[in-house]
Design a protein around this nucleic acid. Structure first.
Lengths: 131, 131
DNA sequence: CGGAATGATACCAAACGGGTATCATTAAAT
DNA sequence: ATTTAATGATACCCGTTTGGTATCATTCCG
């Protein structure tokens, strides 16, 4: 049971790299080596981040990506939401026929509580904390 | 990202059923209908629980399964451990080359903290709570 | 116009998860 | 002893997810 997948991990690294680099834009080619991931793969990740507004893309020669917000405004929760979908600890377990039985209800209720507390924790971690 | 998989969910239901039933043993045939899962599948789950010592198996006619411990002594954590492996939020993300980069280190450290707190929560939930 | 960058998409292979089927073993009931 | 009702152990299947690669289109600086 992974809290984060590789996409999120790579994204975190890349964003830290960008936050540290004092440049208007950083290209994937520059980052991929340092982040430790193949270029095309990282690009796919950056594209998702761009679509979600976490970073800003600049096409053409000399282009690349730039952070769209300050590092302390980018939370781990946001990265998880964008790159692996919303954090739902109850995900997909008995979509149908929810709570026919009492035990399931109680269990799911308890898990929902855990989810809330975990969400608060991932919300509290920012790119700034990682840099 | 599921906290529990279906095995754990089914197991929880079955154990609650067993805890309520005032009988020395309960057969899979009796439970499967109420739990809402096909017999053979539930049996596979019960076998794992038996191997792990959570329940006690009685073979032969009139046999079935019986709880090996009191309901309040069976935690959700135990079920997770037995049926889907230890809860590791960092599971499998960059097994190799751990912490070559600072960002990864910090992130993993924070996740480790979340894991500890989550573990305490699943440890606190017992079959008795669900019954 | 040419080169360097992202955008979009399609594809692939391996791992995982949920589920079924089959045969062996045990032990009570008759 | 035979039948019958139960678990033990395995093997298999299949759909989904996941990690990863490849390809072509688009943009824009020089």
């Amino acid at each position: 049971m992974k809290l984060i997948n590789r996409d999120v991990d790579y994204a975190a690294r890349a964003l830290v790299f960008m936050a540290r680099a004092n440049k208007p834009t950083v290209s994937v080619a520059e980052m991929s080596g340092k982040v430790g991931v193949a270029g095309p793969f990282l690009r796919k990740i950056m594209q998702k981040l761009a679509k979600a507004g976490v970073v800003h893309a600049v096409k053409g020669k000399g282009g690349g990506f730039a952070m769209a917000r300050r590092p302390e405004a980018v939370t781990l929760r946001r990265l998880i939401d964008v790159l692996q979908g919303p954090l739902k600890l109850n995900d997909c377990v008995f979509r149908q026929r929810i709570c026919q039985n009492h035990a399931g209800c109680v269990l799911r209720h308890k898990i929902a509580g855990m989810e809330q507390r975990l969400l608060a924790e991932v919300e509290a971690v920012t790119v700034r904390d990682l840099a």
